[in-house]
Amino acid sequence: MSQLAIQTVGLNHHFGSQAVVRDLSLQVPKGSIYGFLGPNGAGKTTTIKILLNLLQSPADTVFVFGKELNHNRIACLAKMGSLVEQPAIYGHLTGLENLRNRCILLGINKGKADEMLTLVGLKEAANKKAGKYSLGMKQRLGIALALIGDPELLLLDEPTNGLDPNGIIEIRNLMIKLVTEYGKTILVSSHLLAEIERTATHVGIINKGQLLFQGTINELHDLSKPSIKIEVDNKDLALDLLKANGSEIFSEKGGVINVAYKSKADMGQLNTLLIQNGLTVYSIGTEKKDLEHLFLDITSKN
């Protein structure tokens, strides 16, 4: 039994002569929230569409819960719920009718539609035409449509688009609840890095169709080199002293200097060096790059 909810093996996809996905080997573990990060046009939506068999893929390149997608399309799709790009809804139907229509197509009890409306906070707008919904409401309806079949795997393409801060927090909490309490697996794409950092257990970073990093969120953080941030009263003298000491200077801005971190002992020695030479050290401590800077570093490499 595969421990991976999604696996792609050297996946490629072209739009005409343009390669949009190149040699992509995703590995999404079961029970994870997999943050699929990348700038606009990186190939995230194309990859999600391939995973849903909306775009053609070569045989033996995409596996969902261990099953090859092209030969087991219906069995694979039966385990998936999705929200791709903007929510796909019928504007002339109400929110409730949109969900009931999905119940018809999935062969499930129509009562589930009311349950989903309550879950995503649209109960009051149940009988309003979906075309008149705000962007945030449409997004919530799209999430309800993805969830209504109780799928094991959710593919959410930028699900917090158009949501207000409260809505973003609700969706974030909902994703965590679905994984921790109901054992679902979620692949969520985003370019909102902070969003991914708060929810994802695993991360894949894609740019120009290539997967540049894949691993746990901790493995991603481990990639960042820590630095020592020093704030002093005389920056120029401090720089001379640090250079003479052989420290690697990363940056200097205002009264703040960033130097390479080696060890705690080294940091203590630097502090002593500065104080012994008559400088006042306002603050000294380690600093790690946040995910946003890491992401920029990684995506700038290709």
């Binding site: 068999n53 999705s82 791709v84 019928y90 999935l106």
Partner: peptide, 18 residues
């Protein structure tokens, strides 16, 4: 056009239906 208007072709074809 009902499907084009709501961009719902993709959701129809991502359902477990032949």
């Amino acid at each position: 056009n009902m499907e084009y208007k709501g961009d719902t072709w993709k959701s129809l074809f991502s359902l477990p239906l032949p």
